[in-house]
Design a protein around this nucleic acid. Structure first.
Length: 406
DNA sequence: TCTGGGGTCCTAGGACCC
DNA sequence: TCTGGGGTCCTAGGACCC
């Protein structure tokens, strides 16, 4: 028997949570924007969407379309809390759940429909439960695979419920633009277009060989996707918890910066931010990358594989700085970021050198004070407290793997 | 007052080793 | 007096996702 998958996608999640927290906002044209001054709309309420406001627009662009638009700064703590309620509610249906992001999850409901009758009844029941437990609406898609379930959840948004039966998949895909499938973005859609492929129907019936020649490994997946099948090797639902592969922080400056000196202060702050996160999870990093973006949006990275795993702010800063000093900046800098990778979560190990022991104790003291009184209450000289408002979603919100706690 | 921030996966070239 | 070939690690960049 084929697996039956349900995809649950919250409707205008951040905006809906804000409306719930402040009923005066209910039904208003609302946009939630990122941190900082040069920011974009991350979520628009449906009222705002009616004016043409979309995710990814700059705030001025959005306001141009909708004079009365209310713009709120994202408050991830609020969203994480609401998300926890949503996911726990879904988990009460089945442990076979794969949390895809803060507002989305897949459920394997293959063995579940017996108790709920038709798949549609189960979809309806889960929507009711989410609404009654959280006050939030979601859109649900049910199909024989993740690709189609995810597509289905978009077909009747908001507050939708769509079941794609196996026998109907072909007719739905026939005229559907390839870009509607999760995994086919603008670049791939453009390349497919050059081959004369515009719809999923055309993609599914296209000979495999030229697709593989053009796209390599992706070619086989594309062919499957055109026929409504999941890409090969898609992760299995309900697997073990996976750890992050990387931890990063970046900032876009209010105005492009030119002086390398001022950017070093930012590097130190970013080192502290990624360092605190990796220490909180008892991890270490074996690789450090520095990312910078120029005013023209060209983006570069330089990375360094380390001889030893690191987790202390001072060490992260030291290595980032050595990368940064080797960089020749060819213009004003818009964004600066640090990524830790080559992660290991088996603990920070023992401290063989007295010096390391002392530095680690100092770090633990700083971390515990910051834990109690808030980020950057205490920090090495030079960190910039202004970044402190830029809280992030905890790593358990990764777009991959199975959540185990909130 | 064009274009956030945090992620994953894939490719491709070079170094290096056997 | 010719330029094998596989495997692995490292690096930089691109595509895509929410």
């Amino acid at each position: 028997m084929k697996a039956l998958i349900m995809h649950v996608d919250m409707d205008a999640f951040f905006a809906a949570v804000e409306e719930l927290a402040n009923p005066a906002l209910k039904g208003k044209a609302l946009a939630v924007a990122g941190p900082g001054e040069r920011t974009i709309v991350t979520t628009a309420s449906y009222k705002a969407r009616a004016f043409g406001v979309r995710t990814g627009m700059t705030v001025p662009q959005a306001k141009n379309l909708c004079r009365d638009l209310i713009v709120l700064k994202a408050d991830y703590r609020k969203y994480a809390h609401a998300s926890g309620l949503v996911m726990r509610t879904l988990e009460s249906f089945t442990p076979m759940i794969n949390v895809l992001s803060i507002d989305e999850a897949f459920l394997d409901i293959s063995d579940l429909t017996a108790g709920f009758g038709e798949p549609r009844d189960l979809g309806r029941k889960s929507k009711q439960e989410v609404l009654s437990k959280t006050g939030l609406t979601c859109s649900v898609g049910i199909a024989t695979g993740r690709l189609l379930a995810k597509l289905a959840s978009t077909l009747e948004k908001p507050d939708g419920l769509t079941v794609i039966r196996e026998e109907d998949a072909c007719s739905i895909l026939k005229g559907l633009p390839v870009g509607r499938l999760c995994g086919i973005g603008p670049a791939t859609a453009e390349k497919l277009g050059q081959m004369g492929i515009r719809t999923c129907g055309e993609l599914g019936s296209y000979p495999l060989e030229p697709l593989e020649r053009r796209f390599g490994k992706l070619g086989k997946d594309l062919s499957r996707m055109g026929r409504g099948l999941d890409p090969a090797g898609n992760p299995i639902l309900g697997g073990r918890t996976e750890k992050s592969l990387s931890i990063s922080h970046s900032v876009t400056f209010p105005r492009d910066l030119t002086g390398k000196e001022s950017m070093k202060q930012v590097l130190l702050t970013l080192s502290e931010m990624v360092g605190r996160r990796i220490r909180r999870h008892n991890g270490t990093a074996g690789r450090i990358s520095v990312t910078w973006r120029l005013g023209d949006f060209s983006t570069f990275t330089r990375q360094k594989t380390l001889n030893a795993q690191v987790f202390l702010t001072k060490d992260i800063y030291h290595h980032s700085l050595s990368i940064f000093e080797g960089i020749e900046l060819t213009g004003p800098v818009r964004l600066l970021g640090i990524t830790l990778s080559g992660l290991c979560f088996e603990g920070s190990g023992s401290f063989l050198l007295e010096e390391d022991l002392k530095r680690n104790r100092l770090q633990e003291t700083l971390d515990s004070v910051n834990d109690r009184y808030g980020e950057f209450s205490l920090a090495f000289g030079g960190t910039i407290g202004d970044l402190r408002s830029q809280k992030v979603i905890s790593p358990s919100w990764r777009a991959k793997g199975i959540r185990n706690s909130y």
